[in-house]
Computed example of a mutant assay.
Amino acid sequence: MLPALRHIDCWIFDLDNSLYPASTNLFELIDIRMGRFIQELLGCDAEEARRVQKGYFHEHGTTLAGLMKAHGTDPRTFLDYVHDIDLARITADPRVVDALDRLPGRKFVFTNGDERYAGRVLDRLGLANAFDGLHDIHAMDYVPKPDPRAYAAMCARFEIVPTSALFVEDMARNLIPAKALGMCTVWVDNGSEQAGREAHPAFIDYRTADIGEWLTDIVKEEHP
């Protein structure tokens, strides 16, 4: 393992577009469902629904947070609806499965999605038993990343020492609170403009376009 990572005993991973390639565009399906939900909720057309959806995302961190604040939307109803998608686009990456199995220490998923959806995705990725815990939007009390309270709550819940932890995330801005806590950070640069917003070397320790390749290199250092 790289000398700079030998102190890491806790590995934390974002889920969507981090543990699987953004090129699968799974979020396209979720995006469509979000639009339909908002159309039905507000009685508006698709164009207005998209404006509302993206506005809430940028202002509140998630579309759900905006809907809850502005319309009192029930989070479980919303999440069940938008995550009711076909996951055939994603498949297991043997490199990620093998590397996570060989990484020393505890592993967690930290996602703005919910546990039910995350469980389906992890099962599809061959990672159903790869993690020691999952901190989802319900556990965050609907205060999503990048709000620092979400990170603090996760660390408290799982007794994570931030200075011994590493966080992998495709949304660069979500690495800022992790770095502030003392975590080592890895940005999965998936090439999208949205993911790279606010990216800065000050809070990014490692950068990769392929988490499978990066993890494989890490475990090779440990077990050549």
Rank of each mutant, 00 (worst) to 15 (best):
I218R: 04
L26D: 00
A70D: 12
I176G: 00
E198Y: 15
Y151T: 01
F158A: 08
A156L: 12
I32G: 05
T77I: 13
A118Q: 06
E28R: 14
P201K: 02
L26S: 00
Y142G: 01
K54F: 14
H83Q: 11
R50D: 15
A152S: 10
H135A: 11
F37A: 04
S192G: 10
L67C: 06
V186P: 00
G191H: 05
D141K: 11
R102H: 07
F27C: 08
L19D: 01
L100A: 04
L64S: 05
V186M: 10
H138F: 14
R116K: 14
H58L: 14
F13L: 02
I90E: 02
S164Y: 07
T91Q: 12
E169L: 07
S192A: 11
S192W: 12
D31K: 13
D14K: 08
R116S: 15
L100S: 05
D101P: 00
A139Q: 14
S164M: 13
E222Q: 11
M68P: 00
A65P: 07
W187H: 05
R157D: 00
R116V: 14
R106Q: 14
L42E: 05
V97G: 04
L2D: 15
L134Q: 06
E198V: 01
R76K: 14
P162I: 00
R33G: 03
G196R: 09
A172R: 07
N17I: 13
L215E: 00
V96N: 04
L181G: 02
G61I: 08
I90K: 05
R102F: 03
K69W: 05
W187G: 01
I218P: 01
L134Y: 03
N25A: 13
G105I: 00
G55I: 08
I38M: 03
P144I: 04
C44G: 06
L41S: 03
E40R: 15
S23V: 08
S164R: 14
F110V: 06
F108Q: 11
R102M: 11
Q194D: 15
I137H: 05
I32Y: 09
T77Y: 06
L79M: 15
E193T: 09
A70L: 08
I218K: 01
K145W: 02
K54E: 13
A46C: 07
T91R: 13
C10A: 09
T63F: 02
D9G: 07
P75C: 05
G182P: 09
C44W: 03
D16F: 06
A88F: 06
A199Y: 09
Q194C: 03
A172V: 08
E47D: 15
K179T: 01
C184M: 03
L181W: 05
G196D: 09
L87R: 00
D147H: 14
M171A: 14
C184G: 09
R120N: 12
M154W: 03
R207T: 11
D9N: 10
R157E: 06
G66R: 07
E47Q: 15
K54L: 15
R36K: 15
R173N: 00
T91E: 13
V161Q: 10
W11T: 01
